[in-house]
Write a protein that binds this DNA or RNA. Structure first.
Lengths: 195, 195
DNA sequence: GTCTATATAATGATAGAC
DNA sequence: GTCTATCATTATATAGAC
């Protein structure tokens, strides 16, 4: 099923995803992508008509990957409590990359949202994905109208942890903040009366 | 006392500060600075030998400005509680810029910390400034060993709020998160036994 | 210290032979 | 679909007359 061109295309997206994350979108040049992939310059333009289009493909891939992760959590964990904890545990498990390069979603959005960048609309979808999933968990906890606000609070807490851990390159700091976040979730569950 | 050249230099730093904040450092070109200041190309190089050097001057100015703010808070507010509230209130009062361009400290650090950028060492000092001041407040509340951890927690919460409000361009969201943060400070003060 | 002209390298993007 | 050569533009940075 997988054609030849598909592999090249996938290689480009994989490499670009990594470079955009570790260096930032703006700082990553076309030449960087050429060198990292080994794909010839003109050839990349055969698959994507611009650097922006590569970024869109990268965002689409991240969206697809995260949708799979969320689906796995839904299958693996039956309670909203366990699902929220899975979200927080992801932060802990990714602590190495988070401290070195920041959050792949947050740092990209922060870069693109400057001065109404067009592409930010696409990258915002990554936040929407988690916001909606988290909202569903809080609704399951009985929060109803408050649910989205709690979801955004949790997302924000996660972002804050990533920013500070990134700036200070401190994984232990991240771990400590993750513990606080777990405690907050426990409190929220107690308050919901669904403990 | 203020010489002619000082004004030109100040103009360059002021404009660059604004551009780096609203557009990001990487996305801001030398030409952008030339156009915004009206200072001739070669003339800018008379004051700064590189774009990086302009950024260092911008960071130094931000440091100086924030030191003044912190000093004012020290004078104006006599209790650590009031000082911490002043910090949180700053977020609320800057909500318009924060939702449009993100946090000037956080977004700059996020950009520069990618892949060990040299300049991040300078921008990190902006975080250190607030971290140390906040730590002093928590020490005054009797937290001692925990103080720095609480300071970084508070800084992280502030960063998370800025990221989410920026991504969603939502000032009301920011306001709601600020309220949560105020509640958290109240709790911390109660727990410290110094209420 | 002011201003013009230009150097030099890098950028994203194309054209077109194979 | 592969590969080379190159375009046009923009980037940061300099040289040097005034």
């Amino acid at each position: 099923m997988a054609k030849k061109g598909d592999k090249t295309r996938t290689d480009i997206v994989d490499c670009a995803k990594d470079l955009f994350y570790t260096q930032g979108y703006e700082r990553t040049s076309f030449t960087d992508i050429v060198n990292a992939t080994g794909v010839y310059r003109g050839n990349i333009y055969h698959y994507f008509k611009s650097k922006e289009e590569i970024l869109e493909a990268v965002i689409d891939q991240r969206l697809a990957e995260f949708r799979i992760v969320l689906k796995q959590w839904d299958v693996r964990h039956s309670t909203p409590r366990a699902r929220l904890m899975a979200f927080v545990q992801m932060i802990a498990s990714k602590r190495k990359d988070l401290t070195r390069y920041g959050c792949p979603i947050g740092s990209l959005n922060t870069e693109l949202a400057k001065d109404q960048h067009d592409l930010q609309q696409s990258s915002k979808a990554l936040f929407d994905l988690f916001r909606d999933w988290l909202t569903a968990q809080f609704i399951a906890l009985g929060y109803a109208a408050e649910a989205e606000s709690l979801a955004l609070h949790l997302l924000g807490r996660a972002q804050g942890i990533a920013v500070i851990a990134h700036v200070y390159g401190d994984a232990a700091l991240l771990q400590g903040e993750v513990s606080r976040l777990e405690a907050w979730i426990e409190e929220s569950i107690v308050q919901s009366g669904l403990s």
